[in-house]
Design a protein around this nucleic acid. Structure first.
Lengths: 245, 245
DNA sequence: AAGTGGTCTAGACCACATT
DNA sequence: ATGTGGTCTAGACCACTTT
């Protein structure tokens, strides 16, 4: 009795790992922990907070604290390589069905002065303007990713890329039509905790990191043509890459 | 006066973003916050804890709470594509010098019964045995990544792969010598908060996620030959991928 | 010795959800 | 109406680091 918050959390974690509490199950609440371990309410609260911060549990005010589940969407960055070339059953995480209802929200197109890092990534002069297209992706009504892409305004201002609806085939098809088809891509990924605004926008529960991806698209002759900054809810995604040699 | 912990944290975060506190700087301590905002010590502690949990700050007991820095190592998964083919200056994050002293620790080789997910990934029967090689990578003496790779024991038991020192060229060279050169790779990435043991092993500060990578290596004819589970300190890495089409 | 973060108690109030 | 998590207070003790 009279344990510390960390010890209570360790105990609960062990009981979760043992299968005593399955994903979706409700954990003992604060009053129960106060009784069972003989601690103050705030200590019990602290124990549950530790599990929430670890992403193991999820608190629902007024209801209880529940064991969290992980059903990722597989984000396959290199789709062109036919899956058949690869061995079967190699997936580590049980991929979610790809048929979940998807949606796009907050679509916005604007022309702005290029931020420094964008100018650098696109090889533009200081003060050049870019078309930026931002959007929010939803799966089953829940936001899972935000994206904002930047293209040289001089290059695409007069194309459909500067319009909310880019038309059939999208941005890349339009780029191809003006002789700037993207052929090579580079993605830089970083994982970190979200800021308060990011957590709000993506509706990520506490204890869930985000994955920040910067994708630069290059033409066949090596010109950077687009930069796309994506922010993914790490609790909703598995990123997949395939490469050779 | 009499603000909430979240509000104090928001205030401090804004002051960090504004540049008032630079990376490495010491933030106002608990007593200072108690005075300035007129709150209880525990509330001041809570405010600093929020910043630490967000990975923005780092607490050093007995000394103070400091603004954190991000100097990543670039982990380039696809090194074969010559960098020269690509445009320059496209890097988003200021990459750290690649010349920092690296080290490997806790090298361990053993033969075990394949865990279920390993058997599935390698296409082995239930109960097959695998050679597993685990190691811990250090940079400047700090652990940044743990890795454990699995290979069919029947295939590599009699090679140097089953020895602590795999010899010149390493595991892949030895595989090539037995006609099983890895040619294709698949990496599945996921970001999440570390468990207590993982945080301990990688020495990650609170508020830092880890990146879990499962890499499967395939031979030219599509046989899975190795699975490697890596765990990276997200505060130390940027993952880079390049691909075409 | 003084200052720092870390943690706990015991009691209080709030907003919210479930019954 | 009751139970839940969320948060704050005021005071206490500890381990650690800095001076």
């Amino acid at each position: 009795m009279a344990e510390t918050a960390q010890q209570i959390a360790d105990d609960l974690r062990a009981r979760i790992d043992s299968g005593e509490f399955a994903p979706g199950d409700r954990l003992p609440g604060e009053p129960a922990l106060v009784r069972q371990y003989g601690v103050a309410k705030m200590t019990a609260n602290g124990a549950l907070k530790i599990l929430v911060a670890e992403g193991i549990a999820q608190a629902r005010t007024g209801s209880g604290t529940y064991v969290r589940e992980f059903k990722p969407i597989v984000r396959d960055a290199v789709k062109r390589l036919a899956r058949s070339q690869w061995a079967l059953g190699s997936s580590i995480w049980s991929a979610d069905v790809e048929d979940r209802p998807r949606d796009v929200a907050d679509l916005d197109v604007s022309e702005i002065e290029a931020p420094k890092w964008v100018a650098r990534a696109l090889g533009l002069n200081e003060g050049a303007t870019v078309i930026c297209r931002s959007r929010l992706y939803l799966v089953e009504g829940e936001p899972v990713q935000s994206a904002i892409s930047y293209l040289s305004a001089d290059l695409v201002r007069d194309t459909q890329i500067a319009q909310p609806d880019t038309g059939p085939g999208g941005t890349f098809k339009r780029l191809e039509e003006i002789g700037s088809a993207p052929e090579r891509f580079e993605e830089d990924l970083r994982a970190r905790m979200p800021s308060a605004e990011e957590a709000e926008r993506l509706q990520v529960p506490a204890g869930t990191p985000v994955v920040e991806i910067y994708r630069t698209a290059f033409t066949g002759d090596g010109r950077p043509i687009e930069v796309n900054r994506m922010l993914l809810d790490a609790g909703s995604y598995v990123m997949r890459y395939r490469f050779e040699s």
